[in-house]
Nucleic acid binder design. Structure first.
Lengths: 184, 184
DNA sequence: GTATTGTGTCTCAAATGTGTGACATATTGC
DNA sequence: GCAATATGTCACACATTTGAGACACAATAC
């Protein structure tokens, strides 16, 4: 009986990712609970949002960290972390989206922002290593690559939602597009 | 005095692209206009939305068509049309987003959908030619490439919003990531 | 079984968003 | 300057969303 909270968070991530101001009823529907129940777990919209961000960061950070330590070669690391990011799916892209809104002022002072930065520290660090080594095309910047990565995740998610390509094939395609797209 | 309507549409595209259910007040603010004025030009939210879609399709279709007829070589066409898409910016990605929402059922019967399909007919047709010729990597599908294209546009827009890379450089980067990413 | 806990239903008040009328003010074309 | 037009301000009714209380019912633990 007790993963209601989690299922609401998952639903919220799915819904908010597409429609930031969607009514909470939509989230409740997606989670197959009443709005009343949703409010029992989350005081208000803001609290739900915050819990979503926490959950996202938790999941992404674990996935990325595991992938990082699974290998010592920067290039293998890149691939592993890339797949980890894919597997985080909309969690990944939603977090990124929140921090790229046109009126969002990204600042290290803000706790949410600094935690966001921390989540992708290993990933960006590894990118820098590869850039320095010349493995990645020299015109690339870490920011560009990071945005590009997030975008490829979106493409992957879309392909899975439509169901036109099966998961392993889509993963391969995604890695192809990403790795070639940054000049590897 | 008379591009208020246009500026409201532009603002709406920007805002709705990030937040589909954003209150109209946000749109008005972005357009530097009162909500009252917004309502003088647009009966209600739906009418504004429809006008946005019309404007988007108009702009994208002109850009894509011009680019198509600017060359006879499929590969040159691809590059020209790619840049045209970049220049349409968020117009492009917003339209695409509306037709990839998880609860959106894409159907040719729907007028909006068929107009959407029409907008990218030349673009997708040209992709097919390149696929058939073997210029594009054979594991790619037209759908994947199209989604991938839209994603790269998002990356481009983000880079411009942050202002970290100047426009020509970003265009070049975008083309690099896109063309290599589909195996050219 | 009974007690406990989680959820649904119904209800309601407050807050927020929407659309419009009336009128004042600003801007434009002549 | 004057007339016409566009926009802003204020006020309002109405709709939707939000958050919570009261209580019933179902599931679970013991």
């Amino acid at each position: 009986m007790r993963d209601t909270e989690q299922s609401i968070i998952d639903a919220a991530i799915l819904i908010f990712n597409e429609d930031l101001s969607a009514p909470l009823e939509k989230v409740a529907d997606q989670a197959q609970v009443t709005r009343r129940t949703l409010h029992r777990y989350f005081k208000d919209r803001k609290e739900l949002m915050d819990k979503c961000q926490k959950e996202i960061r938790r999941a992404c950070e674990i996935a990325i960290t595991n992938a990082y330590y699974a290998s010592e070669s920067p290039l293998e690391r890149l691939e592993g972390m890339f797949y980890a990011g894919l597997d985080c799916g909309s969690k990944n892209t939603f977090l990124h989206k929140l921090h790229t809104l046109h009126d969002h002022k990204h600042q290290a002072a803000n706790e949410q922002c600094s935690e966001y930065d921390h989540t992708f520290e290993l990933w960006k660090g590894n990118l820098q290593v590869l850039l320095a080594k010349g493995v990645i095309h020299q015109t690339m910047t870490v920011d560009w690559i990071h945005n590009f990565f997030q975008s490829v995740v979106v493409v992957f998610i879309n392909s899975q939602q439509k169901g036109s390509i099966d998961r392993p094939a889509a993963r391969q395609l995604a890695w192809f597009s990403f790795s070639k797209g940054i000049g590897i």
